[in-house]
């Protein structure tokens, strides 16, 4: 409860600092209350593809996300956006994501994609697998574009998985808490495509499975899921 008060206090403080536009509209929406039953909360599962793992040096290549409402993933909300980047893509990540320089050049301006993202993220909880990548890259982009960082409650499906292993006192390796390994554990579909949207969808499905497992028929407050 205290964490939420702190978060909300920061939200209101940032709201005063944020320039008019997407960020101010985003911060104007109250954050979901941690005591709420998880099914009444709206979530946005997000995945980024980037040129590398260092948010200070690397760039966002594409953004994929999908909304969860009422315990359902709404596929109508699925969105996949390619971001245009300045400079060549390092060869290794181009191979993984199958995005070429030409395609990236056809992408959209990061500010446009970011503004749209804040529009759908407002009032929601962010879901991501190993969420540090998403929060750090989006946070840096926000600071660059709006002068303030990203303030959002986060569910990290990797952290949830680690907690579950630890609670059951099961030893696990790094490879056990990867998105696809966990998907298999919960009998989830496996997608052949490796892009931001399918990874966001996989994270959303993993989240539904984890929430179902944690609630086990009882009410489950959002706070038990937050990172």
């Amino acid at each position: 409860m205290f964490a939420h008060l702190l978060l909300d206090w920061r939200r209101r403080r940032l709201l005063r600092k944020a320039p008019p536009g997407p960020m101010r509209e985003y911060l104007d929406r109250p954050l979901p209350r941690p005591g709420s039953e998880w099914r009444t909360v709206e979530f946005l599962a997000l995945d980024l593809e980037t040129t590398g793992l260092d948010y200070r040096k690397d760039a966002i290549l594409s953004v994929g996300h999908v909304t969860l409402r009422g315990g359902r993933i709404e596929l109508a909300s699925a969105d996949h956006r390619v971001v245009s980047i300045v400079g060549a893509i390092p060869e290794a990540s181009a191979v993984i994501h199958q995005i070429t320089d030409d395609q990236a050049a056809l992408g959209e301006d990061l500010a446009l994609v970011l503004g749209d993202l804040l529009g759908v993220l407002a009032g929601k909880v962010l879901i991501a697998h190993h969420a540090h990548v998403e929060t750090s890259f989006i946070g840096r982009a926000c600071r660059k574009v709006y002068g303030v960082g990203l303030l959002v409650p986060v569910v990290d499906t990797q952290v949830l998985a680690q907690r579950q292993f630890e609670r059951r006192q099961i030893a696990y390796k790094g490879s056990d808490v990867r998105l696809h390994a966990l998907g298999e554990r919960y009998n989830l579909p496996r997608y052949a495509a490796h892009n931001a949207l399918y990874d966001a969808l996989s994270a959303a499905e993993l989240f539904l499975a984890q929430a179902a497992s944690l609630s086990d028929g009882r009410a489950l407050p959002l706070r038990d899921l937050l990172a």
Binding site: G71, R72, L75, L188, A204, L208, A212
Partner: peptide
């Protein structure tokens, strides 16, 4: 068609389809 769908997940042993709501 895919955009008209919603995804749900049920643990083993859950009544199907879920009632109410």
């Amino acid at each position: 068609l895919p955009r008209k769908l919603a995804v749900r997940y049920f643990r083993r042993g859950t009544p199907f389809p879920p009632q109410g709501q």
